[in-house]
Design a protein around this nucleic acid. Structure first.
Lengths: 250, 250
DNA sequence: CGCAGTTTTGATTCATCTCAATTTGTGTGG
DNA sequence: CCACACAAATTGAGATGAATCAAAACTGCG
């Protein structure tokens, strides 16, 4: 997959834009959470641009100058970091309602790659304007800080996963995390499509793709899940949870 | 080590406090970086309390209500997360000039433990006041966002380390990171004391303490470092760097 | 229909963990 | 100040989980 020119949708109609945040189905999970109607309006004015990406396209690349963060309106992304010697590592999967690009704030350039794993659409939030607006809307400021903090906490959880869990447990943790996030979005917590390949999942979990495949097969043999390529059906949510709970205790 | 009542140093003298930030030797690395004298003064007024901790004392614990972040004035800390089933994992080591506690913003409660690994002193920065002040001082706002973003980027680096490096490489990355941070503080980049035990380092790197010990011995046998318990002397900084650079390439 | 990419599964190798014994270092109280 | 007890670190031998190498099966797309 090679670089593709980003397709930017310019502001079309003032009216439709004003309602964009208000009508977005990711709203409850997104940045404007908890804002009043008037504040929502202000935020809506700021988010002037939507951007569509096809599967495989980069939203941004490591080293790109930083100017905006992105709220995922629809779709699914991965972020990955690459070292000088070519090793790459998937640092996260993001779904709609989640914020991308905060890695870029510290160095005025993005510190990872963000790639759409399916056709997606994001809201471009110019960061300078977000800072400006959040200085006058305490709720927005507070919420933005929470979003950044949540990313830090989430990353600590992944570090824990990578540092202490065994292969099968990592996969269980991954599946339960997806399940919970789908549930929060009103989708089935027990039935979903993986958007990532075994290789990408492996990279995220610090495992080789064969190990991911084997672990999935094992979980299927244990009758905890059903796997059919990217389709996952969790048949025992409790069973999975128990696998994480009492590993050393018993 | 059990819980110890936190020792809080109340504001003593208005004058001495007003100069606290200005005179702090961690200033160049800390939150006030880049502020004007007048802004520094305002920040200084906000940071009303210093707090001293003895080795082994907790600055905060998982679940503690969140009200402030902490700038390390002197000393050395570790942060760790613990799961229900008792597994714990060290998520980071922090030295003076660095900020602790941002994990607590998202849930109004701290999401990890912070423990002093040597006698330390921190500046307590009430978070509500920081938000309030940063709404009027753009430089402060910007800088705070950078600090949070830097933590995210750093965590991604650790995830990469945990997911893709082998034991010896992880240790090299750890030592080089310490070296660089000591250098940035005006200390020797090639000679320092580890404040953490092998067990804590192992937890941080996703390794067992024996593996840490073996890897250190190996690096010593390769004449890249000298080890004497917690004392480390790097004899070939370039040699260490090469170990990380061309592992797969050659 | 065929080809490329992805996934599954098997056999083997290797790195790290585990268990265990010893050494070294540290702090405390007599 | 020294001796003792406890914590931390080193080192070895063996077990084990995941990586590697390899082949076959499946999927989806042109």
């Amino acid at each position: 997959m090679k670089a593709v020119a980003l397709q930017v949708i310019p502001a079309i109609k003032l009216h439709s834009l004003k309602d964009a945040c208000a009508q977005c189905n990711a709203r409850e999970l997104c940045l404007p959470q908890g804002l009043s109607d008037a504040e929502l309006q202000q935020l809506d004015d700021m988010v002037g641009v939507r951007q569509k990406l096809k599967r495989g396209e980069h939203l941004y690349r490591n080293g790109d100058p930083f100017s905006a963060i992105y709220a995922i309106k629809t779709g699914f992304f991965k972020t990955d970091v690459v070292t000088e010697d070519g090793r790459d590592h998937v640092t996260g999967f993001q779904m709609h309602g989640e914020i991308l690009g905060m890695d870029g704030i510290s160095g005025d350039a993005h510190a990872c790659n963000a790639v759409a794993l399916e056709d997606s659409e994001v809201c471009v939030i110019p960061f300078a304007e977000l800072e400006h607006l959040s200085a006058t809307i305490p709720t927005l400021q507070r919420h933005f800080h929470r979003v950044m903090s949540r990313e830090i906490v989430r990353d600590h959880g992944i570090m824990m996963l990578l540092g202490t869990l065994r292969a099968e447990e990592r996969l269980v943790a991954f599946l339960l995390n997806l399940s919970q996030r789908y549930a929060a979005r009103g989708y089935s917590p027990t039935e979903f499509h993986l958007r990532a390949t075994r290789d990408e999942i492996g990279s995220y979990l610090g495992l080789k793709l064969e190990t991911v495949s084997r672990a999935l097969s094992q979980l299927q043999d244990s009758e905890l899940i059903q796997v059919q390529q990217k389709y996952i059906r969790i048949t025992s949510l409790d069973g999975l949870k128990k696998m994480l709970a009492h590993t050393q205790t018993c």
